[in-house]
């Protein structure tokens, strides 16, 4: 005895096919807001390390060598949870909708960004990433009283060449004390 329900469903699926043609056609459903592969925006990253602090499985690592700071996401450990996207102050990380990430070699599954650092002229140590200093200067100068703008710009150019320890040591020589702005 033939089952009537099975026949009815079979005719319905002949009329409208449910299967997608994936490797030979587009994937099924990729809405916006989907959490796929995380990608860095090279111009916006300031190298602050906020994403490194908040990553739950510790998939983000920071390495410093040769005057450059390199931030790396290990895609094999990443949970694709989008916490780094929420925490980043410059919106430099976005989770795109790419999901085809299979590789033959595990060391290729990573995403990196490199930021150069400023060298102190007195002691030679690398003390801060360069985009941080230039962004701070632009933001301070855009909101300050135009009367003080010129002095502050000149001072900024001198002070941003020394690390905080050397700035304290050479404070007399550089005329570095906050009261001169009052």
């Amino acid at each position: 005895m033939v089952n009537l329900r099975v026949l009815v469903e079979a005719f319905k699926s002949l009329a409208r096919c449910v299967t997608i043609k994936y490797p030979f056609g587009p994937p099924a459903y990729t809405p916006e807001g989907m959490r796929g592969k995380p990608e860095f925006d090279m111009e916006k990253c300031v190298g602050c390390g906020g994403c490194f602090n908040c990553c739950p499985p510790e998939a983000i690592t920071i390495m410093e060598e040769d005057g450059k700071r390199r931030i790396e996401i290990n895609l094999g450990k990443c949970l694709y949870c989008a916490t780094c996207q929420e925490v980043c102050p410059e919106d430099a990380i976005t989770l795109t909708s790419k999901f085809e990430l299979a590789v033959y070699d595990l060391s290729q599954a990573k995403e990196t960004v490199e930021v150069s650092q400023v060298k102190c002229e007195n002691c030679g140590c690398y003390f801060a990433p360069e985009p941080q200093i230039s962004k701070v200067r632009d933001r301070v100068l855009s909101k300050i009283n135009p009367v003080q703008k010129e002095t502050i710009e000149k001072d900024f150019q001198v002070y941003s060449k020394y690390c905080p320890t050397c700035r304290k040591q050479l404070s007399f020589k550089l005329n570095y004390h906050p009261r001169k702005y009052y």
């Binding site: 694709y80 299979a102 590789v103 033959y104 070699d105």
Partner: peptide, 21 residues
């Protein structure tokens, strides 16, 4: 291991891509 498929969890389309490799 020959092929690695990252994801948590990876979509079925990503698994099919891994099997094609």
């Amino acid at each position: 291991v020959d092929v690695y498929v990252p994801g948590c969890p990876p979509k079925p389309e990503a698994i099919i891509h891994g099997i094609a490799l």
